[in-house]
Design a protein around this nucleic acid. Sequence first.
DNA 1: GACTTCACTCTTTTT
DNA 2: GAGTGAAGTC
Length: 769
Amino acid sequence: MQNLLHNLNPEQLAAVTLPPQSALILAGAGSGKTRVLTTRIAWLIQTGQVSPAGIMAVTFTNKAAKEMTTRLSAMLPVSTRGMWIGTFHGLCNRFLRTHYRDCALPQTFQILDSQDQLSMIKRLLKANNVDDEKYPAKNLMYFINNAKDQGLRANRVEAHDPIERKMVELYDLYDNQCQREGVVDFAELLLRAYELLQRNQPLREHYQARFKHILVDEFQDTNDLQYNLLKLLAGQGQQVAGALFAVGDDDQSIYAFRGANVGNMSAFEREFRVENLIKLEQNYRSHGHILDSANHLIANNSKRLGKNLRTDAGHGEPVRIYEASSDLEEAQWIIEEAKSLMLEGALRSEIAILYRSNAQSRVIEHALFAAGLPYTVYGGQRYFQRAEVKHAIAYLQLMDNPHNDSAFLRVVNFPTRGIGMRSIEALQAAAGQYGISLYAAVPYVAGKSGSSLNSFVKLVEGARFETGQLALPEMVRVVLEASGLLQHYQNEKEGADRIENLEQMVNAATQFVQEEGFGQGAPAYLGPKTYASVGEMLVEGDGVEIIDADTPLNVVMSPLSAFLSHASLEAGDAQAQAGQDALQLMTVHSAKGLEFDAVFITGLEEGLFPHESSSREMDGVDEERRLMYVAITRARKRLYMSFTQSRMLHGQTRYNMKSRFFDELPEEALKWISPRVQSHWFGNKKSSWDDAKFTGGSDNKIAQQIAQKAASNGPGWRIGESVAHAKFGEGVIVNIEGGGSNARAQINFGKAGMKVLDLSVAKLDRVGR
DNA sequence: GACTTCACTCTTTTT
DNA sequence: GAGTGAAGTC
């Protein structure tokens, strides 16, 4: 045990060895919070205070859960089996699978991902003749998820106006439809679990008694429903209360947009009468200048629990800041800097390029590709989200639960088999009339379309019959063939990648079966029906069935059901080119929890970072600032920031001002390395930018256009230039009209808005540094 | 019914 | 720019 606790600093040690009471650990970035969390679990078990089955550890991402499990197995001689370690969604899924009857779900219920949820809502709107202009599907989806995240069913949502009343009505219809189809969305997983525990006392008491220690990672990201679920599980206010050990950092709360409520931290402190509050402020990750920047920036947020990171590492290198002329040039600069880092010996995988939104990766990817540098993009199009993979999954879903209409519609005519709009409409009418699924409605459709539908049903059932005894990977292989998907893509010109992805699915299934402990040859369908005979079922209280704590996944789920859950819940990290040493590209959001020797934060422009939509939301800019804080604190040794004068976004060029966050960084930690070039588009003055970059492609045209426009206005002002106005403050020239003494400039003054000023009259200053 | 083309919108982050 | 949905053509 000495081993376990050595090398912990006093605060970490105190946190790890706290008595079994509720505790709140304020853990700054890079302060070793995962270490504290896992060491505490190990310590609790090694000191005999709790058995593995008494532990529940909740995270938000699958990555974090996996990491925790790995670290624990390294620390503990005992197996991590029996502990409940996972994401909120993963654990709730497991819980609902175990108690599917008690929460009125079919044993093979399936999970809708956001895509499926949206398409389902669209269908619902259509079926009910709702004007989708007035009630956009996305809004309704947001409305529903929001309600669920707060733990509210339709009958408990307050409607303030007719629009909301209608939305509530649709919410109810939506829930009914889900129930008919035997599908649940993400939020529903949590809400069902919560309601079941709420309603079912013996069950609740069983779990309360079981989980002596509940540990929550990234507590600042919990939403109201998740917090309430934790309260219920911990048995807050009860005699047998479990200890809730919450680790979080209010400065890293970046998920308010999906219902996260930082207020849960102070609510927790208050409601659980937390006496043990420990701050971890010693940072082991970043050099001084980087940490100073982070501290300085985040100090601009008002509502904070208060925390300042310190480090023993020296100042290190200053933060380098670069102003590029365009997004292309920004990418070029990143590549040059990355190359020189690698010359100094940096590993490619230790260099991260971060951006605010996924759309920004395109330009950088392009440049990296052209430069021949290997890179990996995280997030974005994930494996299980790819169209061809979703198609294959849909066939599997239909075989496990034919009433999943989303799956049905996805593949009923893909590959095409002569079932068109009219057949589908007839089918939907029949299904609506009898209140049944599309699959179940097939017998009610007569005529020609009826017979093609029938053969589709036969296809699905034939596949099920054929694969009845096969193991999951073999089953997947058969389905890929039988569905005609493989053949379809073989005939397609650009189908090679897709076929590869489909074949990859067999591997994914093989790996999954192994990792989850399903027997190598276990039939894909078999599993749940056998659990009663395994003797793992206990009966308590009013005949409530409780499968014992240690029941592994393979007892409550068939390999197929489990695999389908996995596909929805894990989405598959963009198939990481394992082993490949590559540059890491990702959004700031997905960088959370990671660290790199060198980090580039790109696109630091007003409107992009902070994002323009943030100014509309309450405390939106504060959240953007926290996001920036997360980005900065990812870096160990080197930090780069960049912004550009012009950027191609959504098909048009935009001219943004540099991000306000630059003004919130400590000047002494920064080094501005952009060349100060006034008019690099004019031929006479050679800029230090490589003019070669304008020699080809569409950018060349844009550059010429801009140069022409600028030239016609004589020396002085050009588009993209930063200016200052006595009244309006700082701005960026977005456009210049006319010439000579008539020249007028359209200037984006950010806070003061867009203005058109007469250049011969307006008093403008150049903004230099 | 299948397939192509065109016009249109919506562009933040994700379990 | 991409993805969607509607309309047009075979």
